[in-house]
């Protein structure tokens, strides 16, 4: 089998770019912790409210600037439906589902993860600007899917 010289140049460039992409992604994930949301914790999806932390859904302060938000996604809303944090806060979202698959998505941020029943997923975000942030579900979950939303109020 014979590769044309130009094809060698092209494949070297192409494969080289792919290797660079993978290296950048791998280093930023495994060395700098920018991992995709892959939380391994599990719950009983038919009894999510029986055990901590989802027996008391809501916001909990962890330290001066860090909060943990325990949220239950369900058709077709989130519980709680609204949370409020001061600007500059880092919020760690722990979300599970009490019925079907949903997502927890904040447009214009990297918080965009799947919420599968039986599992807890999580992501963290620092809110550096005040305002009202929309949270929506972008995984089809039934006839009322497009009504599923909540808000995060980031206040001065």
């Amino acid at each position: 089998m014979h590769l044309h010289r130009y094809e060698k140049i092209w494949l070297t460039f192409g494969i080289g770019s792919l290797v660079i992409f993978l290296t950048v992604l791998g280093v930023s994930a495994f060395a700098f912790g920018q991992q995709p949301p892959s939380h391994m914790a599990k719950v009983d999806p038919q009894n999510v409210r029986d055990a901590a932390p989802f027996d008391e859904p809501g916001l909990r302060q962890i330290n001066e600037t860090t909060y943990q938000a325990n949220i239950i996604a369900m058709a077709f809303t989130y519980q709680p439906n609204k949370i409020e944090v001061p600007v500059g806060s880092t919020v760690r979202f722990h979300v599970t589902s009490s019925d079907v698959v949903h997502s927890f998505t904040i447009p214009n941020t990297n918080v965009n993860f799947m919420v599968t029943p039986g599992h807890i997923n999580m992501a963290e975000h620092t809110f550096t600007e005040a305002g009202s942030y929309l949270v929506l579900c972008n995984e089809y979950c039934g006839t009322g899917h497009h009504y599923m939303q909540m808000t995060i109020e980031v206040v001065e």
């Binding site: 992409f21 994930a29 495994f30 995709p36 892959s38 993860f113 799947m114 599968t116 599992h119």
Partner: peptide, 21 residues
């Protein structure tokens, strides 16, 4: 297709990402 999903570890996701490439 499951990169944003819980219950699959980062390492296996990354291995399949490499194979995807």
């Amino acid at each position: 297709h499951q990169l944003m999903e819980s219950g699959i570890s980062e390492m296996w996701k990354f291995i399949q990402t490499v194979l995807t490439f």
